[in-house]
């Protein structure tokens, strides 16, 4: 395996939480699901999943995941409850193509957020 075996996927999404829970907890649940989904879809190595979630007012929340088994790391925030959120994410993995990465991203987000494409 070499550098060209890794696939890179970046995306922006606008998120509206589906429940009144803490955005941080919702994000952690989504990330945990996403990592799990990648593992069951043929991903052999998670190089890095990293991103930012912003609500336009609070300090941004940064997240990072580097393994199929460990818990994603979050730092920054806290994000305001009830706000719309802007997600920016980059995924660098092996064994999964960009179409799968995009589809799995939206599938996993849909469990916790109303999700729309976000330009910029």
């Amino acid at each position: 395996m070499d550098a060209h075996d890794f696939v890179t996927f970046s995306a922006r999404r606008k998120l509206a939480p589906l429940t009144a829970g803490s955005p941080r907890d919702l994000l952690l649940s989504f990330l945990t699901d996403y990592v799990k989904a990648l593992g069951t879809s043929g991903c052999s190595i998670i190089g890095h999943i990293k991103g930012i979630v912003e609500d336009g007012e609070s300090p941004p929340l940064f997240f990072s995941a580097t393994s199929l088994s460990g818990e994603p790391q979050l730092k920054g925030g806290p994000l305001g409850q009830g706000s719309d959120l802007a997600l920016t994410i980059t995924v660098i993995v092996s064994g999964v193509d960009t179409e799968q990465l995009s589809r799995l991203l939206d599938d996993c987000l849909a469990g916790y957020f109303l999700c729309t494409l976000h330009g910029g």
Binding site: T8, F9, S10, R12, K50, G51, I52, P59, P60, F62, G76, T88, T90, I92
Partner: peptide, 15 residues
């Protein structure tokens, strides 16, 4: 330098 189409770490460091 990031391979992704959107910079993430740069935003963090600027903050």
């Amino acid at each position: 330098n990031e391979v992704g189409e959107i910079g993430i770490d740069g935003v963090f460091l600027e903050k």
